[in-house]
Amino acid sequence: MSRAPAPILSVRDLHVRLWTKFGVVRAVNGVSLDLAPGEVLGIVGESGSGKSIAMLAVMGLLDAALVDAVAGSVTVGDRSWNDLTEIEAWSSRSEDLAMIFQDAQTALNPVLTIEAQIVETLKARHGLGRKEARARAIKLLEAVRIPDPQRCLSSYPHQLSGGMCQRVMIAMAVGCEPKVLIADEPTTALDVTVQAQILNLISEIQRESGMSLVIISHDLGVIASIADRVHVMYAGRIVEKGTVQDVFAAPRHPYTQALLACTTRVDDEAAAPRAIPGALPDMREAISGCPFRDRCPIVLPICATEDPELDAVEGHAAACWRMPGADP
């Protein structure tokens, strides 16, 4: 087996507990992942499975007021963080990481012009002067195909469409020249035609710059079209991982199988969208056994008592007692 290149981002055993109105929620329960340079990793999973919280924890962007505890370690390039509890309440973890969000319009400051927001970024990241920063901002806006960059610069976010705001966010993130870009459902808030454009743009920029990309999406089609590998999340953990081809062609975890069965093809008008019966388990309690067992069609007795582990091996793996190699 050939030695894989050293990962640009690795996360080990990430746990996040959040304060909520209903008590402490165990939002992320032992997520580990590795991202190779230039790789595109897709993360899927239903709402509330902890995708956003996990990535915000990696970024060091969790809201300090919301966090009960964070554990695990994050390595970016050759720097490691082993104590994640001390949240950098006023900053983020590393300049090699950048992130774009689902709702770009609210992710931009409403009282500053686009110019102010891009220029401040370039000043902070590269120490550019005002003039150089402005020139660079125009270049960046051209790169994300904003038709009239001059005009865009003098606009406020509310004067731009959601798609335009997301382009600005991408320009700003790319301007930071990160080694890893994390895109949390970057197209969910946009209408369908714009979705495709933004997705192509992200994919293109990723290929040109050679940065790594983590893309979170509900849309398996999106993941299939741009990701190299995919991680499937359920109840705050990764339940299946592998290349896009492997996972989508031969899903191993019953949750992934159900998820794939749910996605109806656009050309298949007759098939009504189906949902996986049941709901996520109560995330307030520590779950003993497999978190999916209550919804699982092929449950075993052991599933109630012992949590199946995800094989640390590279390649295709699923956290399920039914897997070959998993010995009940």
Binding site: L56, M59, L61, D63, A65, E88, W90, S91, S92, E95, L97, A98, M99, F101, D103, T106, A107, L108, N109, P110, E120, T121, A124, R125, M169, M172, A173, C176
Partner: peptide
């Protein structure tokens, strides 16, 4: 501080 644009500003490491 709880607004999304603060998260963006933090991510930019201003």
């Amino acid at each position: 501080l709880g607004k999304p644009f603060i998260r963006t500003a933090r991510a930019k490491r201003l």
